[in-house]
Each structure stands twice: as C-alpha cells, then as structure tokens.
C-alpha cells in the first residue's frame, strides 16, 4: 500500500492549501503550490473600461495645495506592487486590524480573525517614517490622503472619459 499512502500524502500536500484558498482567499497559505487564476472578464461590447486606482495625495509644504505623491519614491524601498495592500491597511495605522473571513461554497458563518496590533511605539515609528517620506516630496508632514478613484477610458482611443473619486481617507500624522 506504499503507493496509495504516498498518493494520499501528496494529494493532501497539494490539495489542502488550494482548498483553503478556494473556500476563503484570505486563508491562502504560504508557501503553497498555487498559481493565481486571474479570472476577471470584460464586456467587449462596451467601448469603455473602468478600473480603480489608489493614489496618495500630500499637501505642498508652502501652499498646502494638494499634490499627488510619486508612489515609487514614497514607498521606497518597498516595491510599488504592494501599494494597494498597504493602503488597504492604512499603512498599519488603521484602528481595526481584525480580519473577517468569509467562506465560499461552505455554509460556515463569517469568522473574525484577530490580527496583531502594532504597539504605540511602532505606530510612532510608522508615523515618523511617513512624515519623512512626505517631507522628501516637499509636502507637509502632518497628513496625507489615500484616495481611491475610478477611471473610465475608451478602449477605442485610450482617452480618459471620466475620473471620479470613489473614497478617500485622510491619515493624520500628529
């Protein structure tokens, strides 16, 4: 029965992490042998396409006018591909760090998972890090905005048809 036992062990090794991801994407384990599916679709009859973007907006240190921050410089050395995720957690400063796990395909009720909460010292360190990043871009170190906008473009010409602010959150650093 050696082969059957090995087969069961390998199936569990490969299948269980994938099953976890399928029932609750937030439970995707690492490391695991899983590729992302990227299964979104577009309607090709639509001549426009809408997508969401996250932008960071500071305030000019002299005029206090809004100023779009350059994400690569702001996040450095963190790669910009993590911007959306860092913004979601408000750069570690969000008051509620708990994660609610919603299950798919199973009739389990949502579960709340308590995430690690940063200490006051860590929050102070984080704010100082953000302040320095803002000052580097000639902005006031007091606050900045995480702005989520929806942009609609024409898929025929590539021109922007509409841009609207979807939500924004001001992060105070005082």
């Amino acid at each position: 029965m050696k082969h059957l036992a090995t087969f069961c062990a390998v199936s569990a090794f490969l299948g269980l992490p994938y099953a976890l991801k399928v029932v609750a994407p937030v439970l995707e384990p690492y490391p695991a042998i899983i590729f992302p599916s990227g299964h979104s679709k577009v309607d090709i009859n639509d001549t426009d396409l809408t997508y969401s973007r996250v932008a960071l907006v500071g305030f000019d240190k002299d005029t206090l006018a809004e100023k779009q921050l350059e994400p690569r410089a702001f996040l450095k050395p963190i790669p910009t591909q993590y911007l959306t995720y860092l913004a979601k957690n408000e750069f570690g400063l969000e008051a509620d760090r708990n994660e609610t796990i919603h299950f798919r395909y199973l009739s389990f009720p949502p579960r709340t998972f308590e995430r690690r909460k940063p200490s006051q010292e860590e929050i102070g360190e984080m704010k100082q890090w953000l302040r320095e990043k803002l000052i580097e871009q000639n902005c006031s170190g007091e606050r900045f905005i995480i702005r989520r906008s929806k942009t609609t473009i024409s898929t025929e010409t590539g021109e922007t048809i509409k841009r609207e602010i979807h939500s924004e959150k001001t992060i105070a650093l005082n």
């Binding site: 384990p29 750069f91 570690g92 994660e99 995430r115 690690r116």
Partner: peptide
C-alpha cells in the same frame, strides 16, 4: 536588502504562514 528598516506596523503576514 530592502527589507531592512521597514516599520513593524506594516507587518501583516498571511494568516496561514
């Protein structure tokens, strides 16, 4: 190397890791 000096407040590991 870039992982040096990242504030720990950003630490948000995968739940199953």
């Amino acid at each position: 190397g870039w992982l040096n000096d990242i504030p720990d407040a950003l630490y948000y590991p995968p739940i199953v890791s």
